[in-house]
């Protein structure tokens, strides 16, 4: 038994390290995959793209709401040293502008309340260099989504 003390200690240390590593790095790994995947689906860095109505054949992220219209923008301060300008155009109905860091935290959210909302974000305002900005607009019907298409044309996400 004494001869196994070393291997057992090694096993325990590796188990703890592996466990902690997976739990710690899983969110950033999943977020990085999402960042890449939505880019492959056409969402640019520093530019909003309105996603199609959330349906079984259009969903790209887990648990989307079919009642909401999503516009996404990827940010990367490595390509925007002076920061980024983000504007959510006015929309009649619920709307929000939310910012997610590389660890999946929703570090800032601004509600629309029927008015346009604009913000300048710099690297020091964000917990990570890369992340995702999401506009949600309530659009349970096709007519609502048509209104979102109109409003989304005036959304802005750009490097300064």
């Amino acid at each position: 038994m004494k001869r196994l003390a070393g291997p057992i200690a090694c096993s325990i240390i590796l188990a703890l390290a592996t466990h902690a590593g997976i739990v710690y790095f899983a969110p950033s790994f999943i977020m990085d995959r999402a960042y890449t995947m939505i880019g492959e689906r056409g969402t640019p860095v520093h530019g909003f793209q309105l996603a199609p109505q959330m349906r079984p054949d259009t969903q790209s992220v887990v648990r989307p709401s079919p009642d909401l219209a999503y516009s996404g923008c990827r940010f990367d301060f490595g390509q925007a040293a002076n920061g980024i300008r983000v504007k959510m155009a006015a929309y009649e109905g619920y709307s929000s502008l939310s910012f997610f860091d590389a660890q999946t935290n929703n570090f800032r959210t601004i509600r629309g309340n029927g008015e346009p909302q604009e913000i300048t974000l710099t690297a020091k305002d964000a917990p990570s260099a890369k992340g995702i900005i999401l506009i949600r607009r309530l659009a349970p019907t096709d007519a609502d989504y048509a209104r979102v298409i109109e409003a989304a044309q005036n959304d802005i996400c750009e490097a300064l």
Binding site: V23, P27, I30, V61, V62, S96, S98, N105, N106, R136
Partner: peptide, 26 residues
Amino acid sequence: MGSEDASPYFRARIARHGLLALANTE
């Protein structure tokens, strides 16, 4: 959910099952 206060385990769970969830004030 969506908060920096989330435990590492819950943060990982949400990343897998509810990515881009809003913080509770919203």
